[in-house]
Amino acid sequence: MPTKLSPIPLLVLRRLGIGLLTLLIVSAVIFWAVELLPGDIATEVLGQSASPETIAAFKEQFGLTDPPMTRYLAWLGNAVQGDFGLSLANRRPIADLISDRAFNTFFLAGYAAAIAVPLSVGLGLLAALYRGGLLDRWISGTTLTVISFPEFFVAYILILLFSVQLGWFPSLANVTPDMTLADRLHTAFLPALTMVLIVAAHMMRMTRAAIVNLLALPYIEMAELKGMKAWRVIAIHALPNAVAPIVTVIALNLAYLIVGVVLVEVVFVYPGLGQLLVDSVAKRDMPVVQAACLIFAATYILLNLVADLIGIASNPRLLHPR
């Protein structure tokens, strides 16, 4: 990064370019990692005793006859258009397997984010406002604890409380496409709450830290000396400068949600992409694993990209160049 001030469009273009390049490299890593597999996918799936004809037919069906570079380009080209090829396990198009599940996964992550983001930014601001107070100490205490808990521990405690003891929410979140939105929100509440608990603590702590870091600066002291109210100092003077770090933390946590969803889906038997991924890893169904990994990795990279772009666009020093 150049140290002198650059105009925003240039920075944005540059970051977009880096993001696209990363996506390309990651897709290559996902494809070639499987290519480097010792042995042959066809014999792996069909067994050692398969006849040469069966193997030839299998290779024909899954397009394994071309050289790897050709196949990589074809795979990437088709994947961009939403066609991921055939599953090894049941020979069905992967796109059909994935579409509903991908929607479910993004629905769950979005649901969790919709609760977690406002909650944690709000509480983080309050903690910064009343530093050293009861809320503040409570937040740092719980953050430490919650970060250390495995997702499934949080999930089972919630199941024990809200599902087994109180019976408010189902412990198995088996959403179906024909559910109404209200039903869906109710069924998916416990998985969403689990993810909220996992990410909210971190976001709160970082929001607080971003604000508190600024409070030591002279211009904040100046505002305080002018006799401004504490909340005004924070909302008008500190917050604009803290937007970039806060948004970055939010996007990082959303990216984490996309990954953390894998475990939560397995606990609640939620029909999402994560569960499909775990099942396919166990079955060693390469094309499905590759497709799911590509979707997860792409979402993760895009969220990081968005975080950086918002960080660039919301930096007051870049918005008002001297």
């Binding site: 990363t22 490299i25 890593v29 990994c293 997860f296 993760y300």
Partner: peptide, 8 residues
């Protein structure tokens, strides 16, 4: 680091 570790 661009690929989430669990996925990788």
């Amino acid at each position: 680091m661009a690929i989430p570790s669990l996925i990788f």
